[in-house]
Write a protein that binds this DNA or RNA. Structure first.
Lengths: 175, 175
DNA sequence: GACGCATGCCTAGTTCATCTAGTAACGAGG
DNA sequence: CCTCGTTACTAGATGAACTAGGCATGCGTC
């Protein structure tokens, strides 16, 4: 296994106007946003008693459910990037809180399918959960076209991330 | 086994064209990106042995250092949104790994200043660290103006987040 | 100068979500 | 039947955060 990978294009520091330096500036901005967001999340003590991964899991499940697709623990674990042991505990939590049910898979008696036990609107709640007006204002300052651009950019970044290690559940089809 | 991938069926239940729904779509996109990013981070086991907050801390320190500003544990803790107890442990880790030194503050003998003990280039490494070409490609597909827009948007979101709970350290490093 | 209170960092002990390792049941193939 | 890989779970350990409290120093007041 070639475990190197840090050898690629390591041109140090920016300041010029190259594409590379623009890319780094964008990555910096993303990371800065992430830092601020998780700091804010910690400061406000995660209101709903739902952890980060719990919310992400519910979003994934509800969306899959809307598409008529069923999801098992393994797929969910891979999506979240956690191990099979962790997903079991996570599902225990969600099941105890009556947010999901575990049902036997009709095709494979070892496997489960996870059925969300809350209305789809809950996605909105989970998404909005702790949204502050301050953020909404920043977003609404964007023109519709700009908002569209931001959304598309983030979605493409997400897909790129998903494809980095993920050969099992994401067929490529590069957009 | 081969479960279909759901590609962008981004039809939301709130599919009107209102400003509110645009805002929610943007928040969704941000959260989706975050999900993918942290999953990816976990999958690739955080190459450097540095945790998330450790990297953010080093970035903050190195940048402050470049600006000729010195940072103490308290400020850093507030930036990361963690407690003073946690920052002590974090600094212990970084100091043991020879990434920082603790030096007495010349002004206040109770206080410390934290001096990064690695070259500034390390910012680039910390930023690029696990960056894959896939992401760079997405970013480079943006026009310069669009990249500018994305950066500005993310910076404004970060500021909004900082201001939600944060009245103390409103230092801005926005360049 | 000596007191009281505030501040900055650290220590001790706990909690919580993750991990690794190992187990039981099932599916597919010889 | 056996064997091997897969799926979900259990048990115990780890690590990074938290709360509560301790010491030293700084600063205002007498």
């Amino acid at each position: 296994m070639t475990s190197d990978r840090t050898d690629s294009a390591r041109h140090y520091w920016y300041g010029d106007g190259s594409e590379r330096s623009r890319s780094i500036a964008v990555l910096e901005a993303l990371r800065g946003f992430r830092a601020a967001e998780s700091a804010q999340r910690r400061r406000s003590q995660i209101s709903l008693g739902l952890g980060e991964n719990d919310i992400l899991a519910m979003r994934y499940l509800l969306r899959a459910n809307e598409e008529g697709r069923s999801v098992g623990p393994k797929e969910l674990a891979h999506y979240l990037g956690i191990t099979s042991a962790s997903i079991t505990v996570l599902l225990d939590r969600l099941e105890k809180a009556d947010r999901i049910r575990r049902e036997p898979s009709p095709f494979d008696r070892r496997a489960l399918i996870i059925v969300p036990a809350v209305p789809t609107d809950e996605i909105a709640i989970a998404t909005l959960g702790e949204v502050r007006e301050e953020l909404i204002q920043v977003i609404e300052a964007l023109s519709p076209d700009d908002a569209e651009l931001v959304i598309r950019f983030l979605a493409e970044m997400r897909e790129a991330l998903d494809q980095i290690d993920n050969h099992a559940y994401a067929n490529e089809e590069h957009r």
